[in-house]
Design a protein around this nucleic acid. Structure first.
Lengths: 224, 224
DNA sequence: TAGATTGTTAATCGATTAACAATC
DNA sequence: TAGATTGTTAATCGATTAACAATC
């Protein structure tokens, strides 16, 4: 079950390639070389070709890649070729931002139901949806059949929600709560932590500030 | 300038250790071994010790680590020992979620100003703050002196905002827009992409679904 | 054919893991 | 002292990069 032959970083980059390809398609570009992909994505041409090689052969030597063809292939690889319903748990600030997020549609990701345990919220509208009772999640997902879930509740409730999602048949969880979830082996979790991101930046940002100060007193000409 | 001797994954884990330590402190625990850290963080004891070794010696052989002592040290390393002001650009859904995010405070991260270019929004309250004109960002940051900035605007505006943040003196950018930013060498960028996270999960989630199906028809007893 | 660009193999790099002497 | 746990070194693992024969 831990048979992930494809490196995670490769999958992450696949999503970036897809975005670049969609932009190129929008711009009416028919064909793209790995060189050009490097230009637009910041990821090296060699890396790009290597990443694709995990899944097959998609280009023509001397020519490059068909933009629309590769879009289709990557979408299939990532299972974004048909609509993926998602269960959202937590009708707070983050949930609200997610429901209103305009970029999901282009990737065929759709938040198909929202749950909360706050009886004041249950029954109220939330974007196009209505907030449902978290107690009904299994029942509701018997209809929807979602494999993906998003946890956008406070940390202290996150584990309980994870258990409910798994019980409802979800096998992939995007977790916004700052806590480590324990899940069965077949369930994948990815954590989004604003705190963590900012902490890493904080380390570097002040580092750099000192650095710049060291080389040229601030206010002098830029180093770059 | 690319002299990042400390691996990025190590910095990311530092933030996780800090969270565990804060929880332990809350619970009144005085001392923690690397073994116990492994238990609580899911990160191996060896990794934990190795990570800390980049910064010095913090434990006592035979005893472990002082919880409060290590909290203090990691906070210093990550520059979270004194308040870090942050500039937020974009008073939309995501910005709203960030301003209302309760967990920043414990890490001494504070959104010190919010900017937008929409004149309908400018001047309106936003959390405790008032939305300011993006045109004034440099001027405002001359007061605040923030090194960190958050971009929460649509993709098409993100590069322009990044340029403004850099000009205002920011050296670390957290980017929520699905686009690659070009910044000077001394500026660090971290991207948060819901799309990317969900795409990776989508790949695995359906993978796993097929897998479970393959081994035991769905509806049968759970594999784990 | 000549030029361009692929897919893949081998070499390099860097991060994780394991083991253990040092030390409380 | 005996037991526990650290910090660090060496071994392993995996991902990235470079190079090039194959091919359009």
């Amino acid at each position: 079950m831990t048979e992930t032959r494809v490196p995670i970083p490769t999958l992450e980059r696949l999503a970036i390639y897809l975005r670049v390809l969609l932009d190129a398609h929008e711009a009416g570009i028919q064909t793209l070389s790995s060189q050009e992909m490097e230009q637009h994505s910041g990821i090296s041409a060699a890396q790009f070709r290597k990443d694709l090689s995990y899944f097959g052969e998609f280009g023509k030597p001397g020519v490059g890649y068909s933009v629309s063809g590769l879009i289709h292939c990557i979408e299939r690889i990532l299972r974004l070729d048909e609509e993926q319903p998602i269960l959202l748990v937590g009708a707070g600030n983050i949930g609200s931002a997610l429901v209103g997020y305009p970029n999901f549609r282009a990737h065929r990701l759709r938040i198909a139901a929202v749950f909360d345990n706050n009886f004041v919220k249950i029954g109220r509208p939330f974007g196009d949806l209505m907030i449902e009772d978290i107690a009904r999640i299994k029942e509701v997902n018997a209809e929807i059949g979602a494999r993906l879930g998003i946890i956008a509740v406070p940390a202290h409730a996150a584990q309980e929600v994870a258990d409910l999602l798994v019980e409802a048949g979800v096998t992939g969880i995007l977790n916004f709560a700052p806590t480590i979830l324990r899940v069965p082996e077949h369930v994948h979790v990815r954590n989004v932590s604003f705190l963590q991101e900012l902490a890493v930046l904080s380390y570097h940002a002040v580092e750099e500030a000192l650095c710049v100060n060291g080389q040229a007193t601030r206010g002098g000409k830029d180093g770059v």
